[in-house]
Design a protein around this nucleic acid. Structure first.
Length: 283
DNA sequence: ATTATATCCTGATCGC
DNA sequence: TGCGATCAGGATATAA
């Protein structure tokens, strides 16, 4: 499940190989994404690759006449962007070959060909999106980026105070704070010692600060480990993240809490999604 | 206005 | 061995 750290990892890996790359063609195999066929990016170079919320944005730069500028993709549940080409993304590990990924659906939904290689968009469940846009407003919503300077304890407290929703569910809302998904919501609440069922509005100033700190530290830590691979996530080299080794509660139902070493982790369902927490450490 | 639910989609897993 | 039911969840549309 690509959340902010996984998307950030893909962007950081793709940026060095794609910036400056010249587009040859975009081949669209999934009819759901046929609007991509109208693109006018051929011959243009990518000037920047970056993350906005959980989206990956390829910036082809502005061009006279106000033509399309951005190609935006959201991986949703099972999407993967895999680079293959002469330059290696990310680090010096060997570049894996297509045959190394038996689990991936055989056919990409989209293939983006550049002068020096290509990016393939794999996505078995086809929830992911890939669209073309002219303006930043097409990928920037109202939600605040949790790793930005704009995100302060005061801002978080102000947003929380406007909702009575259970704080776990509130954290998944992309119109308040972006980038947090089901895994990091549970993890941040555990680190802050806050019960996921607590109404957002009920958090004290101290708890708001703890949650603010926890959100930032868990996201930053996950980025350092190239994200979490739970079932489908792979980075742009087709490799797993490593943060799953550091998860404290997610997918640990019935196992002992790593903090109190006593209570077994509880799984509950909130808004049709699993939430994991320690009923001793989170109040 | 706010909150809850249905929907999209397919592979993995489970119980019989 | 097979087969239907269930589960996984990001984000949005629709319902309550």
């Amino acid at each position: 499940m690509p959340e902010l750290p996984e998307v950030e990892t893909v962007c950081r890996q793709l940026s060095p190989v794609l910036v400056g790359a010249r587009l040859r063609a975009i081949e669209v195999y999934d009819p759901k994404l046929r609007t991509l066929r109208k693109h006018r990016f051929e011959g243009r170079k990518i000037v920047r690759v970056f993350r906005s919320a959980k989206q990956i944005v390829f910036d082809f730069g502005s061009v006279a006449g106000g033509e399309d500028r951005f190609l935006i993709t959201h991986l949703r549940m099972t999407g993967q962007l895999i680079w293959s080409g002469s330059k290696r993304p990310g680090d010096s590990r060997r570049l894996m070959a297509r045959e190394d990924f038996p689990a991936r659906s055989a056919r990409p939904r989209v293939k983006i060909q550049f002068d020096l290689g290509e990016v393939e968009f794999f996505d078995v469940r086809r929830f992911g999106t890939m669209v073309i846009a002219q303006h930043e407003s097409d990928f920037i919503g109202p939600g605040v980026e949790p790793l930005s300077r704009e995100f302060s304890p005061a801002v978080l407290g102000s947003l929380l105070s406007q909702s009575r929703q259970p704080v776990k569910h509130w954290l998944l809302r992309q119109d308040c704070v972006v980038g947090i998904g089901n895994i990091y919501a549970s993890e941040a609440l555990f680190r802050a010692g806050i019960n996921p069922r607590r109404p957002a509005i009920s958090l004290s100033a101290r708890e708001v600060r703890l949650l603010w700190q926890s959100i930032r530290s868990v996201l930053n830590s996950a980025i350092r480990h190239n994200g979490t691979t739970f079932s489908d996530y792979n980075d742009s080299r087709g490799e797993s993240g490593a943060f799953q080794r550091f998860l404290k509660v997610y997918d640990r139902e019935g196992e002992r809490c790593r903090k109190c070493r006593e209570t077994k982790i509880t799984r509950i369902t909130q808004q049709q999604r699993s939430t994991y927490f320690c009923r001793t450490c989170q109040r």
